[in-house]
């Protein structure tokens, strides 16, 4: 069992989500940065889809009541482990030790792991060997922050049981992770014909700044307002996908994240391709991004 001493700004239980229920208004949710969740699970010898903690920024503190193999992936930054709550070993002062991300970490019974503030990126994933045991809702342990489905956000004092998702012993000591850089790749449409030629051009030729309104539902971008051909025309609600770039009437685009509503009434000018979706999880307010149109 592990005990959350502090969840930091936000810590959620996530796995790879619950696709298949969108027709009933339930989105897929799941880890925002899926590759990092998969990697964390592989590092500790879990099934790739095992349940992890997704934590925003720094500040998550976990007290391990049992010795455990742990991995932290996602954002870059420090990971500290210090000697524990209620554990004393005479003559051995507990100096915190710095640990690496993207490596299996061996945490002893009673020790406390702390996620430091990210130096790059925003969301970190903490996998524990065997995974975290929480009840599944519609086939997933993911917290959908918009739909209010799945385990409640993690609070200080929460006790989390370990699951049975471990499959193999950890195989590697460290994985070199290189953050993908360069423009976000997008496919124009499905409603690019609602926008002026200038707007379509601006999407992929001007810089976009990440606004402060960013969460798992959507990431708002600031830049040249994207103008429509017919500003007063209304779009009948239609299904939307993660990565869809919706443009509300004010012209500031919003890129939909994993907890997006299943339908939306704003035209989608372009959609971020699947391979670049994980990068959205690591955007921070003030980051500047470029987009490039691609075809598949």
């Amino acid at each position: 069992m592990i005990e959350v001493i502090s969840p930091g700004p936000q810590t959620l239980v996530q796995d790879l989500g619950r696709p298949g229920w969108a027709a009933l208004g339930v989105g897929s949710s799941g880890a925002f940065d899926r590759a990092s969740l998969r990697l964390a699970n592989r590092l500790v010898g879990n099934r790739e889809s095992a349940t992890c903690l997704e934590t925003l920024g720094g500040g998550l503190e976990i007290h391990f009541r049992v010795a455990c193999v742990v991995a932290v992936t996602g954002a870059e930054g420090s990971v500290m482990v210090r000697g524990g709550v209620g554990v004393s070993q005479p003559g051995q002062p507990h100096r915190p030790r710095g640990e690496s991300r993207n490596s299996p970490l061996y945490v002893n019974e009673g020790e406390v792991l702390t996620i430091g503030p990210p130096t790059a990126g925003l969301r970190s994933y903490v996998a524990v060997r065997r995974g975290i045991a929480v009840p599944h809702v519609l086939g997933s342990a993911s917290r959908d922050t918009l739909g209010g489905i799945g385990p409640e956000p993690v609070l200080a004092g929460d006790l989390l049981d370990l699951g049975d998702d471990g499959t193999h012993d950890p195989l590697v000591d460290h994985v070199a992770v290189r953050a993908r850089s360069g423009p976000l790749r997008v496919m124009l449409g499905p409603r690019e014909d609602w926008f002026t030629a200038d707007a379509i051009s601006a999407l992929t030729t001007t810089h976009w700044s990440v606004a402060t309104q960013i969460d798992r539902v959507g990431i708002r971008l600031l830049g040249v307002p994207l103008s429509r051909v017919e500003p007063s025309r209304e779009l009948p609600s239609e299904p939307v996908v993660s990565g869809a770039i919706q443009v509300p009437p004010d012209g500031s685009p919003v890129i939909l994240g994993p907890d997006h509503p299943t339908t939306g009434g704003y035209p989608v000018i372009a959609v971020v391709i699947d391979a670049d979706l994980d990068r959205l999880a690591q955007l921070r307010p003030g980051d500047v991004i470029d987009m490039r149109a691609v075809e598949v």
Partner: peptide, 21 residues
């Protein structure tokens, strides 16, 4: 095809990475 979702006048057909789109 992995998921089929109705909208007001549209239908979304999601597909896997391997589909010949």
């Amino acid at each position: 095809v992995t998921e089929i979702v109705a909208g007001a006048r549209t239908v979304l057909v999601s597909h896997g990475a391997d589909a010949d789109v």
